[in-house]
Simulated assay, not measured.
Amino acid sequence: MSPASIIDQAFAPAAQSIAHGNIPGAVLGIVTADGQRAVCWKGMAQIEPHEESLARETWFDLASLTKVIFTTTAILKLVEEGRIALDDPLVKAIPDLRQYDMNAAERRLTFRQCLAHQTHLPAVEPLYTYGQNPDTLRAFVLQREWRSGPPVYSDINFILLGIAIERITGKPLSDQPLPEHFSFNPEPRLCAATERCAWRGRVIRGEVHDENAFALGGASGHAGLFGTIDGVLDFAHGLLDGKILLPQSLNAVRTHESEKRTVGWEGFYPGWHGGDGCSPTTIGHTGFTGTGLWLDFKRGLAWSLLTNRVHPSRHKDSGIMDLRRATGERVIALFEGRD
């Protein structure tokens, strides 16, 4: 079945979630390896302090989709250019990492380990509570003796990778080249609102929701990227048809480094956020603000569900996990003519 023939039915779980008041709005996009695409949207880009309708052109805070769309791809491009290798230690790019202790565990971390979240670093740290000077916070990240623990999904991994990209390229993340329909500095009036932030004292719109990314200057390796549904679908199509990454890099993002993780992405596992109908060759990732992207390479199919589920507050049960799973299972069933 073509994306155009299934998009309305595939959007039904999101439409129901909007109708029940679980999320303000959503946009669903589907694209195939041969370039067919379809998009459906409904609901509000903002409900506070005043209402504004969502459109196909609405920009979303992609949150942790930054990790896969920007950071992972940028690192793999640097590998393809021969400037680093995946198994090089981060100190090849950041020689001052833990520079006061040459035996520090952080100095042995590799690009591959950080990309696949196979490090001892913690999941998250409230860096923004230490101040808002981006240079000082970067120095803090580099020199802190991080508490050791088992491998977990860690924002710190990708903050370090973002610093590495800046060091290798000589450009801050905010000045890195981006494809059309992506930006670290979007026009606020074009964006979906996120949270009424207690720390910043306002509804967040057009500036990154993630507090640490905001304190680091708005662009970080773990969050800060904004994009439209068509930008995300362009990226997905480029991975499906092999035009964004060389075969060796594409193989890296498709190969499990652990039960759940590949290089940069999550790989399919039973019960995951993409739905159990996905083939074992599926990779995906989600973002805290309510975003997500999945690519089923066996079927030559990708879909993205972008929502503003944290607007006006993250402190509610939006049912986003169930919505993501229901959407993925419905997309696949309709695509195969089973629904």
Rank of each mutant, 00 (worst) to 15 (best):
P134D: 07
D241N: 15
I163Y: 04
H20L: 14
E57F: 03
S64Q: 04
A198R: 15
A198S: 12
R314T: 01
P150R: 00
L65P: 03
A104H: 12
I283F: 02
A74G: 00
G162S: 11
G35A: 07
G206R: 08
F158E: 01
H315N: 15
L239K: 11
I47Y: 05
T66N: 00
M321I: 11
N212C: 09
P177K: 01
H237Y: 14
M1V: 14
S5C: 02
T169A: 04
A302H: 08
A223I: 11
T32M: 06
P280N: 03
T73V: 08
E195W: 08
T129P: 01
G170Y: 11
L225E: 02
R138K: 15
A93D: 03
G82I: 09
Q248I: 02
T262A: 09
V331R: 04
V310S: 08
G287D: 01
P126C: 10
G300E: 05
A116P: 15
I18M: 10
Y128I: 01
G274I: 13
D8H: 12
Y128P: 07
G162Q: 08
G292P: 09
G82R: 09
L90N: 07
S2Q: 06
G231K: 06
E266P: 00
D339L: 15
F60D: 00
D8Y: 00
K243T: 15
A10N: 03
V39D: 01
E259Y: 11
S17E: 09
L54H: 10
D135L: 12
L137W: 08
D241L: 00
S17L: 06
H222A: 10
D230N: 13
V331C: 03
S183E: 03
I18P: 05
